[in-house]
C-alpha cells in the first residue's frame, strides 16, 4: 500500500456499505413472508383508518431554524481552516476572526430578539 493518504478506500467503503444495505434487503426478500392485505397496509393512526393525507402543512419555525443553521454552519466551515493555520497566521487572523464572529453575533442577537428561538 502506498504511503500517501488516499481517498480510494473511502470510495470503496461507500460502495461496500451501500452494497451491504442493498444485498441484505434483497436477500431477505426471497426468504421472508409476504402476505399483505388492506388493513395491514394502512399507515398507523392509533387503530383508526387515516382520515387525511399525512403530508400536510407544518410550522414555519422549522424553515427559520434551517435558514439560521445554514448561516451559522458556514461560520463553522470558515473557523476550521482558520483554526488549522492559527499559529502561522498570527494576530491579524485572530483580530479578523473576532471581527467576523462579532458581526455574526449582532445578527444572532437580532434573530433572538425577533423570537426566532421561541417554540410554543
Amino acid at each position: 500500500m502506498s504511503s500517501a493518504p488516499s481517498y480510494l478506500p473511502i470510495l470503496i467503503f461507500i460502495f461496500v456499505a451501500l452494497g451491504f444495505g442493498t444485498v441484505s434487503l434483497l436477500a431477505g426478500r426471497v426468504l421472508r413472508p409476504r402476505a399483505p392485505y388492506q388493513e395491514k397496509l394502512y399507515p398507523y393512526e392509533s387503530g383508526i383508518h387515516p382520515l387525511t393525507d399525512a403530508r400536510q402543512t407544518f410550522p414555519l419555525r422549522y424553515y427559520i431554524t434551517a435558514m439560521l443553521f445554514v448561516i451559522f454552519d458556514i461560520e463553522v466551515v470558515f473557523l476550521y481552516p482558520w483554526a488549522v493555520s492559527f499559529y502561522q497566521l498570527g494576530g491579524v487572523a485572530l483580530l479578523s476572526m473576532l471581527f467576523f464572529i462579532g458581526i455574526l453575533l449582532v445578527g444572532f442577537f437580532y434573530a433572538w430578539q425577533k423570537g426566532a428561538f421561541v417554540w410554543d
Partner: peptide
C-alpha cells in the same frame, strides 16, 4: 416524509430540526 404517517412526518421534522440545531 415518505411513510405517509403523521407520526413519522412529525418525528422526521423534529429530528431534522434537532440535528441541525445541535450540529452547530
Amino acid at each position: 416524509w415518505a411513510s405517509n404517517s403523521k407520526y413519522s412526518l412529525l418525528g422526521g421534522l423534529r429530528s431534522a430540526a434537532q440535528v441541525i440545531s445541535y450540529e452547530l
